[in-house]
């Protein structure tokens, strides 16, 4: 009942604006996990440093380093998160061919074990939205596995490096007795 009451508050709406409808269709086609990660990174830069900068429960130096570390973490995480997701989705795309798949010249692609490695048997056309979303999903899952390792190999050292750079660029610490 409470759930229905919530929906009752929202008025019924028909989207008349063609521009808006095209925008929603574009989101469905173009926005997936890599772009989602970019959006999260960009909005994180707008909110998280502000939240850490106003954290009154820590001293000034800690606050400063905390803000720098947060920015560094977002930059490093977004950079690796975006490119690894994108790369893995591209790889899955390359190895998920269907009988309907054609190359750039419009000729049918000869199927083999490698280029059908990730092809599901229940997909009908490689041009369907569902198949595109499937490749995004599988690519993202593979990317998450890869990122469990790169989290330590790339993100952590890059975060440390950038934090030190940002702290130095912001004038360093007032009392360096916290090291």
């Amino acid at each position: 009942m409470a759930r229905q009451a919530f929906y009752d508050v929202i008025p019924n709406k028909v989207i008349e604006s063609e521009k808006l409808r095209r925008g929603i269709a574009w989101v469905n086609k173009e926005i997936s996990t890599p772009e989602n990660r970019l959006i999260l990174g960009a909005t994180a830069l707008m909110s998280q440093p502000f939240i850490d900068g106003h954290n009154k429960s820590v001293d000034e130096n800690t606050r400063k380093v905390s803000v720098c570390r947060t920015i560094a973490k977002i930059v490093a995480g977004t950079f690796t998160g975006y490119f690894i997701r994108k790369g893995c989705i591209k790889a899955i795309d390359k190895w998920s061919k269907l009988p309907t798949s054609v190359n750039k010249a419009g000729q049918k692609i000869k199927l083999n074990r490698l280029n059908t490695l990730f092809s599901p048997s229940n997909a009908i056309s490689d041009l369907s939205d569902a198949f595109m979303q499937y490749k995004n999903a599988l690519g993202t899952i593979v990317a998450l596995g890869v990122m469990t390792i790169t989290n330590f190999l790339i993100d952590a050292p890059l975060t440390k490096y950038l934090t030190n750079k940002f702290v130095a660029a912001s004038g360093g610490l007032k009392h360096d007795n916290s090291k």
Binding site: P120, Q133, Y134, A137, L138, T140, I141
Partner: peptide, 22 residues
Amino acid sequence: MTFKNYLYKNYGESPGKMLVHT
């Protein structure tokens, strides 16, 4: 193959659900 077909069936038509789960 079962795993791939499951992904196709469950996330192919629900990209929002895929974003949440991943």
